[in-house]
Amino acid sequence: MEGYEVIFAGNNFIRLLSGLWVTVRISLISIGISLILGFIMGTAMTGRNPFVKVLCRVYLEAVRIVPQLVWLFIMYFGITRLTGLNLSGEAASVIVFTIWGTAETADLVRSAFGSIPIHQFESGFSLGLSKIQLYIFVILPQALKNLFPNIINLATRMIKTTALISLIGVTEVLKVGKQIIDANRYEAPDAALWVYGVIFLMYFAVCFPLSLLSRRLTERKD
């Protein structure tokens, strides 16, 4: 059997796709929770309480400075052992990506609110809008326009980063690929080239449209 035949032999391709779905699902869940928490945190960061601001900043920088893979290890090997909790690889990944995603979303929300000129607030108030009205009708629509492309970018980054979860034992597309390669070790010794090539293209097929969308939205804004 030639290497490329392995890809479509049996239900191999479907298995690869469902492996890809595992990573995409984990990113979607994480980004969903991150959006809610990040919005709250980002709003807190634009507020006036200096203590909250410093706390958020420290959290953000602490999450950012350590590689995500290290966080995954800490959650999967460290926390489980310290607390005796039995976290599955998937649960650990969702927690880590939510912690990270919240920090990144908050920073995006903060800069989106921060980029709105002060006169927008003043004009709104001078028109007699209440604070809630001001935010709903004036500030949010403008902030969201800035925010949306960046959030999509973050989602792309997250999908790419979830490829790491195979290293803490989650059976996602790379693991499935390895299983397929191992199963066909004798029939198709060159399967690795094709399987990893296909996985490469699969990630591209998921991330590229998102990047394009984000770029379109950024261009339209300008």
């Binding site: 792309t156 790419k160 980063t161 490829a163 790491l164 195979s166 290293l167 790379l174 690929g177 080239l193 990893y196 090539g197 996985i199 490469f200 990630y203 591209f204 991330c207 590229f208 990047s211």
Partner: peptide
Amino acid sequence: LSRNTPLIVQLFF
């Protein structure tokens, strides 16, 4: 190609 694929997949390939 490079921006839309994860490093680990590039390395595996």
